[in-house]
Design a protein around this nucleic acid. Structure first.
Length: 359
DNA sequence: TCTGGGGTCCTAGGACCC
DNA sequence: TCTGGGGTCCTAGGACCC
């Protein structure tokens, strides 16, 4: 394979930006998309906060109740009140499709990585200068047709493109030439490497490692000893090496849904009914998906104290009907109603159902 | 602060088989 | 001074991503 030039595009505060665009009265306001805050007693988290809301300390994944407190404090201080909206996820998915169509006009191959992110291959443009021009055109088209901004990274592979797209948000464009990759990554926090999450970051901090450059002092074998197979992969990522191809389409491996209740539930009858309803929702999506059978059923139960249990069972024969799914889910759940499994009679906060081994 | 919902991938132990 | 070795499947838990 010759030289690759890969782009990564990431919509800026996507859900919040859509709400701001579609509701003129929100223009210029701090906007939070996420769970219903219910006056500070709501459950759930912030999905997306726009940049104005981030000035209040509100970010993705923050408990919505905390976001509400920050918003109240800001309001009392005379600052612009925060707009809380629950998401219109079907609308975001439709806009996402429109954006992917724009992208497809400029690149030979695209890989949609999530509702608001995609990789695209611009190797055919022939140079980083030409690739940068393509990226500008993509951003301009999205701004013109969708009235939304995006940030783009360009690099020799998916890894570098993704890290680059996050460097100059919002409305950014960051180009990293192949020869500059190691210098580009060196000063960045090790956490920018996809796959390095809170746990790995903490482990590294204890070893005195803060940046990507710091982490390069470990050999491949040392990283493998610390983190297994992933350590070898990480060794390459710390140096910006990645030969993963773009994958235009791939099949789902599981379909599942889970629900956190407004209030924790103790009543076994209500729990059984809720589990069957969740199973029915999963089954409807299974039918819509085009798969014809499932062989594994898994459930998840989260107690009021947040301890979480999963149980799964694989059937010798694949099934395709709702009754079997509900029966298997209930069978897996039953032991949790037993005093031995739950001696303190803890209430249940969340339940979920997932099917796997789909054909 | 009190922690969503949709997923993917990896690990480790045990069962089972040759 | 015991008790192989490898492969595959299954299960539960956990890290991680958006």
């Amino acid at each position: 394979m010759g030289m690759r030039i890969i782009g990564h595009i990431d919509m800026d505060a996507f859900f919040a930006a859509v709400e701001e665009r579609d509701n003129p009265r929100f223009a210029g306001r701090p906007i939070v998309v996420g769970a219903d805050p219910k006056g500070g007693r709501g459950r759930g988290v912030v999905s997306t906060a726009n940049y104005k809301a981030r000035e209040y300390g509100i970010r993705s994944a923050l408990p919505i109740s905390t976001a509400w407190k920050y918003a109240e404090a800001a309001r009392r201080a005379g600052r612009d009140p925060v707009v809380f909206v629950e998401g219109r996820y079907a609308a975001y998915a439709e806009i996402s499709r429109e954006i992917m169509a724009i992208l497809a006009r400029h690149a030979s191959l695209i890989e949609q990585a999530s509702v608001d992110e995609a990789y695209f291959d611009v190797s055919a443009s022939g140079s980083y200068e030409a690739a940068e021009a393509v990226a500008r055109q993509i951003k301009d088209d999205i701004r013109a047709t969708e009235r939304l901004t995006a940030s783009v990274g360009i690099g020799p592979n998916k890894l570098v493109a993704k890290i680059a797209s996050d460097r100059e948000k919002p409305d950014g464009l960051t180009v990293v030439h192949e020869k500059d990759v190691e210098r580009f990554l060196e000063p960045l926090p090790v956490r920018v490497i996809p796959g390095v999450g809170p746990k790995s970051e903490m482990m590294f901090r204890k070893l005195g490692v803060r940046t990507v450059g710091d982490a390069r002092r470990f050999s491949k074998d040392e990283l493998a000893d610390m983190m297994g197979v992933w350590g070898r992969e990480l060794y390459d990522r710390l140096r910006g090496r990645d030969d993963a191809p773009l994958v235009a389409e791939y099949e789902a491996k599981s379909i599942g849904e889970q629900e956190t209740f407004e209030r924790d539930i103790a009543d076994p009858r209500l729990l059984e009914k809720t589990l069957k309803n969740i199973a029915a929702d999963v089954y409807r999506r299974f039918r819509e998906s085009g798969f014809s059978s499932y062989r594994t059923v898994a459930i998840i139960v989260r107690f009021a104290d947040f301890t979480t249990k999963t149980r799964s069972g694989t059937m010798t024969k694949p099934a395709d009907d709702l009754a079997t799914l509900q029966f298997q889910a209930l069978r897996l759940f039953m032991p949790f109603l037993d005093a031995r499994e739950n001696p303190q009679k803890k209430k249940i906060r969340l339940m979920g159902v997932r099917i796997e081994k789909l054909y």
